[in-house]
Amino acid sequence: MTMTHAARYGRLKLLALLLFLSLPVLVATVMALGRVGIPEGRTAHGELAPEIPVLAEWPLAANMAPSVSGDWVLAFDCGRRCAELSDQWWRLHRALGREAPRVSRLRVGGQAEALPGEVVARWAERPSWLEPGRLWLLDPRGQPVLGYPADVDPYAVKADLGRLLRMNPEAPWQGGQELAGQELAGR
């Protein structure tokens, strides 16, 4: 039994098509098993979930309790470079644009006057987890999300904060709007 030239050509085309379609699966399997060419998956520039307590448990002076509930919080220890750090984080806050009202800045320590939009507090006692000049990003419940060293690049912090704000959009009834008022207006 001999195959005609057209039948061999058709089978060859089918074999080439199957090989072409299975090639991505083969490459993906080799990449997964060999851990070759797979990105790390890390996108944050800071330390994820730093080992510090929630904001409500920070040892702040009693009359200095910050009122930043409902906002993301940029909290920083203001040590030797207080004026420089305050200005740096104020500029980053302004660079957030329309997302800026969703973020509060908490400066702990320092002698300088508060910059616009900055809440100033003092340590009642120095916590064991404190590192001078450190910056922390806290979620609206006061949970620590990211921690940064004193020499962090502000652009890295802005990128992380921008990503978090995009991934966690503001609820329509927040931001000065009342849910009940919206429901009544719609009737």
Rank of each mutant, 00 (worst) to 15 (best):
T2L: 12
A7K: 14
A7N: 09
R8D: 09
L14T: 14
L17W: 07
L18A: 06
L18G: 04
F20T: 11
L21R: 04
L21M: 14
V25W: 12
L26N: 10
V27Y: 10
G34A: 01
G34P: 01
V36A: 06
V36F: 09
G37V: 07
P39F: 05
T43P: 00
A44Y: 11
G46N: 01
I52E: 01
V54C: 02
A56N: 11
A56K: 12
W58Y: 03
P59R: 08
P59L: 08
L60F: 10
A62D: 14
A62H: 09
G70V: 11
D71H: 13
F76H: 13
D77S: 07
E84L: 10
W89S: 08
W90D: 12
R91P: 03
L92P: 01
R94D: 10
R98G: 05
A100N: 02
A100D: 00
P101V: 09
R105D: 02
Q111M: 12
E113D: 14
G117W: 04
E118P: 00
P127R: 07
L130R: 13
P132A: 13
L137R: 07
L138V: 12
P140S: 06
R141E: 04
R141D: 09
G142N: 06
P144W: 14
V145E: 03
G147S: 10
P149I: 08
P149W: 06
A150W: 11
A150Y: 06
D151I: 05
A159D: 05
M167K: 11
N168M: 11
P172M: 11
W173Q: 11
W173K: 06
G176P: 05
Q177A: 11
G181N: 08
Q182K: 14
L184D: 10
R187M: 12
